[in-house]
Each structure stands twice: as structure tokens, then as C-alpha cells.
Simulated assay, not measured.
Amino acid sequence: MGFIEEFKSKNFSIYAQWLGLLSLPLLFFTGIFAFVKGFIFSIFAWILCFILIFVEIPLCIKVCPTSDRFDSFIKNFENHWIRTVGYLVFATLLFVFAHFATTLYVIPGITLLLTGICYAIAGGLRQQHAASSFTGGDSV
């Protein structure tokens, strides 16, 4: 299934995954740009980016050598509601950083907020969790 078919599927889990994937480079590059002024933010952004890579790209868990403990930690995020809470907490933390530092931190915070909202809609509609076929998932 291609990107257009996934977009037409009206599965908010897929939309959330695409928004989560959009958050990855934003977190990474914002962490680089903010390294001098916001060292703590940069470390937080890179750790968050690392975790989200494994949460949003199922192929990484299959391909990368990880410990059983890390795999079980990532499997906790298979539920829409857990992902919703996680993304909303991450977005809130970024907005708090933006309040004390610079508005640059708002950009990945917005994508994380939208991702959390999409996962909440998917959970509210009781949609099955689906991962995009581009990331090693089974799509819709």
C-alpha cells in the first residue's frame, strides 16, 4: 500500500505515525541548533528522538541489536492511549523548555502535540494500531 492509500484510509494511527516521523528530524536538528544555549534541552531532544525511532519504526526493533529490557520498554507503547499520554507529556515538556528559553523548541513540540492528538482520536475511534508499510509495518 502506498502513501496515498494510507492517507485515504482514515486511520489516525497511520497519521500519528507520519507526524511522529516528522518529529524525529525536528527534534534532532533542534537539539543541534540549541546545543550551545540549551544543553539540557539538546540531550533531552536526542534521547527522545532515539526512543521515538524505535517506537515509530517497527523495523528498527527487528533489525537493531537491543536488549530484552529495552524491547519490553518499547512494547509498552503499542497501545494508543499510552502513546497519547507519552506524546502529550513530551510536547508539554518541550513547551515548558520554550517558555524558559527560545521559541525554537515549539516547532517539534507542535508535531508531538499533533501526534498525541491523532493517537487519541485513533484510540477513541477504537482503530487498530497500524504502522506504515514504509517503516516495516503491516499498514492498514
Rank of each mutant, 00 (worst) to 15 (best):
M1L: 10
I4F: 06
E5D: 12
E6R: 00
F7E: 06
S9P: 08
K10P: 00
K10T: 07
S13H: 06
S13M: 06
Y15F: 13
A16C: 15
A16D: 05
A16N: 09
Q17R: 10
W18S: 08
L19G: 00
S23R: 12
L24S: 10
P25H: 10
F28C: 12
F29N: 08
T30D: 14
T30V: 14
T30P: 07
G31L: 05
I32S: 04
I32Y: 02
F33E: 02
F33V: 00
A34F: 01
F35C: 01
F35Y: 05
F35G: 00
V36N: 11
V36S: 11
V36P: 01
G38R: 01
F39H: 10
F41P: 00
I43G: 09
W46H: 13
I47T: 02
I47N: 00
F54Q: 10
F54H: 15
F54G: 09
F54N: 05
V55W: 00
I57D: 04
P58V: 02
P58T: 13
L59H: 13
I61V: 13
I61D: 08
C64Q: 09
S67W: 02
D68T: 06
D68S: 15
R69F: 14
R69C: 15
R69V: 12
F70Y: 14
D71A: 12
D71V: 15
S72T: 13
F73K: 01
F73T: 12
K75G: 10
N79E: 07
N79S: 13
H80P: 08
T84K: 08
T84I: 07
V85N: 00
V85L: 10
V85T: 07
G86Y: 08
L88E: 02
L88F: 10
V89M: 15
F90L: 15
A91D: 02
L93S: 15
L94R: 03
F95V: 03
F95E: 02
V96H: 13
F97I: 08
F97T: 00
A98R: 11
H99K: 13
L104W: 09
I107Q: 14
I107Y: 15
P108E: 11
P108K: 07
P108Q: 06
G109S: 12
T111W: 04
T111F: 07
L112H: 02
L112N: 02
L112W: 03
L114C: 11
T115S: 14
C118K: 03
Y119A: 06
A120R: 00
I121G: 01
I121K: 07
G123L: 03
G123C: 06
G124I: 06
G124E: 11
L125K: 15
R126G: 07
Q128V: 02
Q128C: 01
A130Y: 03
A130I: 01
A130D: 06
A130V: 04
A131P: 01
A131V: 09
A131Y: 14
S132P: 07
T135E: 14
G137M: 10
G137L: 06
D138A: 15
D138L: 15
